[in-house]
Every structure is written in structure tokens, then in C-alpha cells.
Design a protein around this nucleic acid. Structure first.
Lengths: 199, 199
DNA sequence: GTCGCTAAGATACGGCAAGTATTCAATTGA
DNA sequence: TCAATTGAATACTTGCCGTATCTTAGCGAC
């Protein structure tokens, strides 16, 4: 088990390091991810890490991004409600307890620019929603033909991300509540908004 | 400017310390709030701080809570839209750039229990919304008489809090977008939900 | 008033991780 | 084969954490 004599370079080294970051994340949590620890686990050294990542937030975010690179296709359950629930459940799997903790840490450490990368990362799912799921709902006649405002189609992901950051792992019950009392009413309303206020 | 000979105790000491925390927060940001720095600024010592607060997150959260203790009454602009916008603008003032940074730091450092305190703190505004603003809207006939589900009346605060945590200071434009394309349609819909889908 | 308890305040220390500097060696490509 | 690049090992300074120790001021009981 001693050090291999061969010396890694470039992308091979990079992905070994990011793998070590994910391991450290599972074992010690976000605040427990240290340059020393990652260097030890990846059998490399601190200067190598500092040459590539300016801060722990950058390091962990890159590791998470690599892990989440593949966007799973939206499940087709036959109706909009089922599709939305399935998507949020999928998101819950991807951002489990350790992932959520990492997101909170990154958001706290990062500047505005890096925070926007966090948003983009989680928004991969929002795109999936607005492109696939909503189009299918329109095809089925569940929603009117008018395109939804971007904010509206992001609402499921926004509410879920808020839940992820501020509370614990959202339960199935909570996911259904989000979909049933917020997302669906809003989406139906948005396809026929503005409505005369009940004067 | 040398040390006063008198030795503070109890609440007087406590509020001096929390004031020093707020000063350190403005000057050095959340991660720059250190026990050493606060002790120096408040002319006291680290053990005094550790006796009262277990972590920086607890310390800063107490300081923020003290600062935000008074809930400003909801402004009455004459209509629901104006009231919601005014409330979010008020919230933006209370949680300015330094406040938002502090919230991100606390959320990252805190366990689930302390995170719920963060939610409660910001939800003081949600209560104000659901109790006062929505009741006035019902009285005016802007909304139907049916009570809104808790999640729905929290949506303005949730969307704003999400914005505060993940992006920068929300602009007036963004606040209006949140109110016009999400909150108002949802609230109107919720008073007459379920609706026949647009078959 | 004086006695005694509690808690404030000052200081010091051990530990850990950040971030950088220095040096050596392996890989690569010309 | 040689030179440039970059991985790897190590050491060092600094800053903060969290705790222990000790002195002394404030405050209540008698």
C-alpha cells in the first residue's frame, strides 16, 4: 500500500484529488475538508492543491460539480404532479445530507461570483423541469400553451433549495406540500395570468 | 480612553458584547468575527465570551436577534401588491449586505436546531405578512375569504430569503418580479384552488 | 461593615490548519 | 539527452480556537 512510484499529472491527478475531496467530505463534513487532509488522502501535497484551487469553497464546489455532472433525464410519470415530485426526490438523492452541508459551507465562504456557480449547478435541474416536464404537461393539456415566466418555472427548485439550505432533508410529505400547495397552483395560475382581481 | 475601573456584569456586559459583535461584523465580515477580536473590542476577555456562547454562530445570531428585535409594523399602501413590496423592501434594509453574509455564515456553521432559529428570526416578517397584510387584503376584497395555507403565506419571505442567501442584495426590480410573477398569482390562485385544469 | 461567593478580567498555553517558501525529483517533449 | 515543467516532501510563520489558571471586583447575607 505504499506510494506508487509513478507520478500522476494533469487530469488524472485532478480527478484523484476531487475523489479524495468527496471522501473527506463524507468522513469529516465540509468544515473538516482541509488542504492537509485532502493532500494526505490523495497522496499528494498542499502546494499542488493551492496551485489549482484558491479556497476550500472552490475545491469542494469543483468536486461536487464533477460528481453531479450527469443530469438524469426527467422521469415521465404521466402527469405534471408526479413529474415534479419525482424530480424533487431525485434532487434530494443527489444533494443528500453531506451535499447539503457542503452547499451551505460553500455559500458561506464564496463571493457573489462563486455563489452564482452554486445556483447554476443546482439549476441544471430547473432547466430539466422547464424544458421537458412543462412541455409534456402542455402537450397533455394540463397547462395552457403560454410559456411560463422563468421565475415561475424555477419555483420548484427554489423552494427545494431553500429547504435544503435551511432545514433538514425534506421529507416526501414536505415535497408533496411544496408541489401541491405552491408549484401546481402557481403554474396553473401563471398560464392565465393576469386575472381580474375579485373587485 | 483607558479601561474603566468599573467592572460590568450581567445584561449590561452582555449588551456591550453584542454591540461589539455587530461592530466586528461590519468591519471584518462574519468570518472575521473572532472571539479574540470581540473580546478586545468589548474590553473583556475570551473566557467571558465562551461562558455565554458556545460558538461564533450562537454569538452572531444573538447579536443579530438583538438588533432585529423590534418588528416594524407592516406599512399600509392601500393594496396587497404595494404592501408586499414594502415589506420585502423593509426586510432588505434589515438584512443588508453584512446581515446577509452573517446569515450565510450562521447557516453553514449551525446544526439543524440553530438553523431553525434563523428561520424563526426571519419569519417574524412572515407572521406580519400573514396576519396583517393578508387580512387587510381580505377586508378590501382583493383576496377571497378562505385562509391561505401556511406555505403560501410564507412564499414571499421564502423567495426573498433564498435571494438573500444565494445572490446579492435583491434590487427593486427583482422584488417586484417576485411579488408580481410569483406571490400575487399564487395567493389569488390559492383562494380559489382547486381549479378545473384548462381542459 | 466584613465575609464569602460568584463572575469578570487578564494571561498563557497547546493544537490545528492556513498559506507560503524551498528543495528535490520525475515526467514530458523538443 | 537536455531543459522546462510540475509533482512531491518538508518546514515555517501566523492566526485563531478552546481551555486552564489566577487575581480581583461586585454583590448579597449576616
Amino acid at each position: 500500500m505504499s506510494e506508487p512510484v509513478t507520478r500522476r499529472r494533469g487530469d488524472a491527478l485532478r480527478s484523484d484529488i476531487l475523489g479524495a475531496v468527496l471522501d473527506e467530505l463524507r468522513d469529516h463534513g465540509y468544515s473538516g475538508v482541509t488542504y492537509d487532509g485532502v493532500a494526505r488522502r490523495a497522496h499528494t501535497s498542499k502546494p499542488v492543491l493551492y496551485r489549482r484551487w484558491r479556497s476550500r469553497a472552490h475545491l469542494v464546489l469543483d468536486a461536487l460539480t464533477a460528481q453531479l455532472a450527469s443530469v438524469t433525464p426527467a422521469p415521465d410519470t404521466g402527469n405534471l404532479r408526479g413529474d415534479l415530485i419525482a424530480l424533487l426526490q431525485l434532487m434530494r438523492v443527489r444533494f443528500d445530507s453531506a451535499g447539503a452541508q457542503a452547499l451551505r459551507g460553500i455559500v458561506a465562504d464564496a463571493d457573489a461570483e462563486l455563489r452564482s456557480v452554486v445556483v447554476e449547478l443546482t439549476d441544471a435541474f430547473a432547466d430539466e423541469i422547464s424544458r421537458t416536464v412543462l412541455q409534456r404537461a402542455r402537450d397533455r393539456g394540463e397547462l395552457g400553451p403560454a410559456p411560463l415566466p422563468p421565475l415561475v418555472s424555477s419555483v420548484p427548485v427554489i423552494l427545494f433549495r431553500h429547504e435544503l439550505l435551511l432545514t433538514d432533508e425534506p421529507s416526501d410529505k414536505r415535497i408533496e406540500e411544496i408541489v401541491d400547495t405552491a408549484c401546481l397552483p402557481l403554474m396553473h395560475a401563471a398560464t392565465r395570468w393576469p386575472v381580474r382581481a375579485s373587485t
